[in-house]
Amino acid sequence: MQVFSRHFYSLMRKFKVFLTTLAFVWLWICGFWAIYRYFGSGAIAWLGLLLNAWALPLWMLLRSIWPEKYRGDQRESAAFAAVLAGLAVVLLTDTDRGQPVYLAICNLFIFLVYLFHLSAVRHPDMPAVDSRFPELVVTSCKIWHAEEYARRNNFCGLLLIFLRGRCCADSRALIAELRELSPHLQKRSVGLVLFSTSPASDWGGSGQLAAEILQLESGACANLPFVVAGGAPLLPCSRTTAAARPCQWLLDSEGVVVWRHLPHNYRTPGSADLLRSQLFRLEE
């Protein structure tokens, strides 16, 4: 039964990746169709449809190029406002209730499905608070053990952050925020360890961080709770089909979990302010 369940959820994850890719392809095509029809008819409704269709793809593109400048949230408020504004223009100008109206409503539906389903994260049974953090398998099949790592580096605690991947704008935005958190971690002698399924060389912008970056072995059984097989986006820059589940862990010097954050959406992996506010737990 467990084997069937694992294969079922693996198939569903791949289906979600496919649907996400299909949704963005549709929105881009719909925008180009709106441009074509606008120059053919001159109807303002098509410009409204263009705004409605391209709001999300352009917003995500901006976030991908400049993750430090453009930050997302649970509702992707900037894109949501543009989608609704485009729909309003279409409803006000397309008095015949023609193709632009139906396409704009369809795009709104796709946007909502993306927000609340296609980008959702399902966490399996994870280590509980007050339990020991498990061993992980990193590149070259090496075993990483939290207590041993903390003792070897003389840390009073560890902050573990699992990043979805290099192509995830939210992961890169969090990397940028962590630069401001580094002094607080060093002051408290807390070690920062970043895990992902991407090679450490992919995180070139993390050079200013006092952190160790480790690549998880995607197929290792010990890593199964933290790695999603087939969860990486279908992008040319994706070197692997696996992605890490975004989550954050605060451990004491003995490798015991004192706090954890398991976000329900990969677009909201947690912030540096949230992490800073939890450091007091190591003093209790």
Rank of each mutant, 00 (worst) to 15 (best):
P263V: 00
W59D: 09
G48L: 07
D125N: 02
L112R: 06
G42D: 11
A210S: 15
C247G: 10
S77P: 07
G230L: 07
A104N: 12
L209K: 03
T20I: 13
W26Q: 12
L163C: 11
R188M: 12
V101H: 06
C247V: 04
I105R: 05
Y70I: 13
L185W: 09
W203Y: 14
G157W: 01
A176N: 02
E212R: 14
V90F: 10
L274F: 01
L216E: 02
A200F: 04
A82W: 10
A79W: 00
W33N: 14
L49N: 05
F8V: 10
N223H: 01
P57Q: 04
L178F: 04
R166I: 15
T241C: 02
R97W: 15
N265K: 09
L178N: 00
L234S: 02
D273L: 12
A146C: 08
A79Q: 00
C168H: 10
P225N: 05
L178R: 02
G48C: 05
L185Y: 11
I175L: 09
T268A: 06
N154P: 01
F162M: 15
E217R: 06
F226A: 06
W54F: 05
Y102H: 07
V25D: 01
A78C: 09
A232S: 05
E212A: 13
F116A: 09
C141A: 13
V129I: 15
T241E: 03
L56N: 03
N52C: 06
C106N: 04
L22R: 15
M1R: 14
E148C: 09
L56T: 01
L27G: 11
F4S: 10
A104G: 08
P124K: 05
E177R: 00
L251S: 08
L282M: 07
D96Q: 14
G86P: 11
A210T: 12
S201Y: 02
L49F: 01
L251H: 02
R260C: 12
E217M: 02
L103F: 12
S41W: 14
L62D: 06
A200C: 11
R260G: 09
L209E: 06
V193C: 08
F111N: 00
R239E: 11
E212T: 13
L22H: 12
F280Y: 05
S5P: 07
T20H: 15
S253R: 04
Q99T: 09
V129W: 09
G40K: 15
R267W: 10
A232G: 00
L84H: 05
Y102V: 00
P263R: 02
H117W: 11
L19A: 15
F109T: 10
S201A: 06
L112G: 08
S119V: 12
L214W: 15
V25G: 00
A23R: 13
L279C: 06
A88F: 11
E147I: 11
